[in-house]
Design a protein around this nucleic acid. Structure first.
Lengths: 330, 330
DNA sequence: CTGAAAGCGCTTACAG
DNA sequence: CTGAAAGCGCTTACAG
């Protein structure tokens, strides 16, 4: 039985509308009246109901975030940025987990819509491109991270992944490697495509030749990285360097190297991607491509809120830079 | 302009109430009518508005979660369990971040209440004990993790921390150590208290004597662990083993040992707490006290939902076991 | 500067 | 088996 606006109104001997006015700091209210209402609000411990307000304004002051793989630390670092960015602007965050399944992402999209979030931030499954575009037509704005889903109502935050992959290859070549393999992500996803493009850019620029069979796809997990590396190095022992889709895969690759008696980086150099929270703490410390994930989350939130508040304007994609961080693994 | 219940009703030539009945699967509806309504719902792509429903039922099918330190992987592993547990029961999760500040936690509590979440899961700041208890009196149920806040409306999930600390000491003594220091957490918090108790239990049981100056308090972060260890080992070089409040602190301690030219575990053994996601991947791999954080999150959610659905019943605290995991650091 | 009425999109008794 | 009325707690024009 928390106090309602009517309770405040009665106790303060004003109309409900006047209470609403002082709560929302809108319209002129006599100073004396305002003080009385404020005092009553305080006395009753009144907090306006967001639910009731939402029903009429159609805004909930809430954004939804769909996280792909919740065990991947990358997402949590982005999530931090989103949470902070939203909080700063008075928005709450409703979190869903798609576990990387396209159908679950669609379910999450509707869960969020039913809860009437004002906007959504997601790392869409590439399979959902068409669905999300049509979803955006009659739903709140969406910010898609690392996807080129150009469409009205969809804002884009894009990491310069291709350049990152290129930097990785350049570094490996610098260190004298020419037999460089790649552990890619899952197939036709932009994250993977751009890494592969950057990888090929580098290989080509340095006049190397790499067979397709040295580019392996797989889930972006530690165990996948482990398994793929085992397979790769057994089949092609001549490989001396690996560029991994992300740090988790790189970690798995390092484990595999240990098991195969290959020292990292001496017998096999490994470059990761993301520069996740513990990249510097593992053994050997990861050489990796760094992305400012927190800032990415912040930017995504800023973009989304801009889209909410200025729906008429165009909101160009935001680009995030990458950086090579050299540690021990390559 | 998503379809409303009235739109469906008009198009299907029934009353709004009948639509409500089929949506909620309550009451008898003629089969033919139901089919017609269902078809119309599908055709219009109708989704019931959670906010309208919430206004009348006073339930939002949403729980709130307040995360302490969002950079600490411990919380995210718990969060995964909460997210999954809630999703399984059709609940959404509204996430707030308190950053470990008591005032921010209070703010988060009210944000969640204003959004009318049905219940709240939090790792309360010990300073907020009184506040949270009185908050619980006229607000939705709360589940507090690792706090002995016994109070109506507050459910408890408690990790057997004291035993964990004891196991750590036993292990260190087993390995021949007698000069054992402790890097505790922040002062009068239950997490710290119980670890210190368990630590003293072990020291006493093995007939050792440890001065108070070998028990250092500090924030549960890597950099704090680093700084404290530097200070500790410079001042008391006779120390050969450290029990750390959590894995982050343990990691910092390991770094510090490296810098001081002390090998881990030979010159200084280190035991952590939590068994976080990368405990096995760091160098050296962490010996630590393992807690099933995911399960903890699941249990907390189950408890909260039970409290929601069976408010009359008593809901005894849930206890989580711990386990010693021996790796390389001790 | 302040208020009475209508309505946001649902559900809850109450009838029929 | 189905419907008309009231109301959840607010805000939005519209008056005065």
């Amino acid at each position: 039985m928390p106090a309602t606006m009517r309770d405040v109104a009665e106790k303060a001997h004003v109309s409900i509308k006047t209470v609403s006015r002082v709560v929302n700091e809108q319209g002129e209210v006599a100073d004396e009246t305002r003080q009385r209402v404020l005092a009553t609000i305080d006395e009753l411990g009144y907090h306006p109901s967001k639910v009731a307000r939402a029903l009429v304004t159609q805004r909930t002051d809430t954004i939804g975030m769909i996280i792909g793989d919740i065990t991947n630390p990358y997402f949590f670092e982005v999530a931090r940025g989103v949470l902070d960015g939203a909080d700063l602007k008075g928005y709450g965050v409703f979190v869903c987990n798609s576990d990387g399944h396209p159908e679950q992402e669609i379910r999450a999209l509707h869960t969020l819509a039913n809860h009437a979030v004002d906007g959504i931030i997601t790392f869409p499954a590439w399979e959902n491109e068409a669905y999300i575009k049509s979803f955006a037509d009659d739903h709140p704005p969406i910010v898609a991270i690392n996807r080129s889903f150009e469409h009205p109502g969809i804002g884009l935050v894009l990491t310069d992944i291709r350049t990152g992959a290129r930097l990785a290859v350049d570094h490996l070549v610098d260190r004298g490697h020419s037999a460089i393999a790649m552990l890619a992500g899952e197939a036709p996803c932009l994250d993977t495509l751009q890494r592969v493009q950057g990888f090929r850019d580098g290989i080509r620029a340095h006049g190397l030749e790499i067979g397709e069979e040295w580019i392996l796809s797989g889930r972006p997990t530690l165990s996948q990285g482990h398994a793929s590396t085992l397979q790769l190095l057994k089949q092609y022992p001549e490989i001396t360097a690996i560029f991994a889709y992300n740090d988790l895969i790189a970690l798995g690759a390092i484990q595999a190297c240990h098991e195969l008696g290959r020292r990292v980086p001496d017998d096999c150099a490994i470059v990761g991607f993301d520069d996740f929270q513990f990249a510097a703490m593992v053994k050997p410390a990861l050489t990796t491509i760094s992305v400012d994930k927190y800032e990415l989350g912040r930017q995504a939130t800023t973009l989304l809120l801009n889209m909410l508040h200025k729906p008429k304007e165009t909101h160009p994609p935001i680009h995030m830079d990458v950086e090579l961080v050299v540690r021990e693994s390559a």
